[in-house]
Nucleic acid binder design. Structure first.
Lengths: 139, 139
DNA sequence: CTTCGTGCAAAATGTTTGCATAAGC
DNA sequence: GCTTATGCAAACATTTTGCACGAAG
């Protein structure tokens, strides 16, 4: 556990950020979240651990961590931004429109096709995101 | 031109909506927009033609038209919602991160892969959207 | 001890809504 | 005429910011 704390401290320092209590707490909360929480949910979960954290700090920390590449901001339709720890393998998201559940999709073929497509148009992909809204098939 | 107006009237009626001046103007503005404007841009362009249109009506009309399937709402990162006339062929979007330009991408292979992927997980795609942020390749 | 981060409250942004009036059919 | 749509202004939700204080290095 203190090993984890050192890891967080190091990760923040490497990103040129001070390892404050609030940032460490927020980062650990996000690491332990299996879902993709938004700022408000992160505020609630972080507060449960350290009640000194303010919503403003949650927002500022999220921006800083995103800029540092430690976390990823996701834009879903009609929703506030959600976040996840930066994934090692590129993946997309499928949202179950009935339950709201978010499923991660990984597919190398699609990634390659996408890059190829961009290259043909003279572009280099910086980032991408696919969001599929779907419903469980009948039967 | 009056043929166009009749088309718009018909399209709105078919959607179960009254063919008001404001809706016809907004719809024609969007049809004549090569880009993907947001509510505010549509408000400005619509006002240039009919200065009685209010921003509230722009929002209400956009929601109504989207629900009717006549237009499509696009969510880009860190941006307000943008709109386009519902495309006949499914396509995705590439955003040039330096210029902000939005390019439409159509690729059957990716569409098929995506459907196949969803099917394997027991889902039926309702809608999907891919947004690629990219930069022009050097040389 | 200097710089950077934080809490608080206020502001800014994008979008929605209640209500009385106006327009569509 | 009856119903739906509109304009206006106020409300809302989310995110950002100014400022004085506190903590990190």
């Amino acid at each position: 556990m203190s090993a984890e704390i050192n890891d967080l401290t190091q990760a923040l320092r490497d990103a040129g950020l001070r390892a404050t209590q609030q940032r460490m707490t927020l980062l650990s909360v996000l690491m332990n979240s299996a879902d993709h929480p938004n700022a408000d949910e992160l505020f609630v979960r972080t507060r449960a651990i350290d009640d000194s954290v303010s919503l403003a700090t949650v927002y500022r920390t999220l921006s800083a961590l995103e800029e540092a590449g430690l976390i990823r901001r996701l834009s879903f339709e009609n929703e506030s931004a959600r976040y996840e720890i930066t994934p090692t393998a590129d993946h997309d998201h499928l949202v179950d429109i009935d339950t709201g559940e978010v499923i991660e999709l990984a597919n190398e073929e699609i990634n390659h096709l996408r890059e190829e497509l961009a290259r043909r148009m003279g572009y280099e992909i910086v980032s991408h995101h696919t969001m599929i809204r779907a419903r469980k098939s009948q039967k």
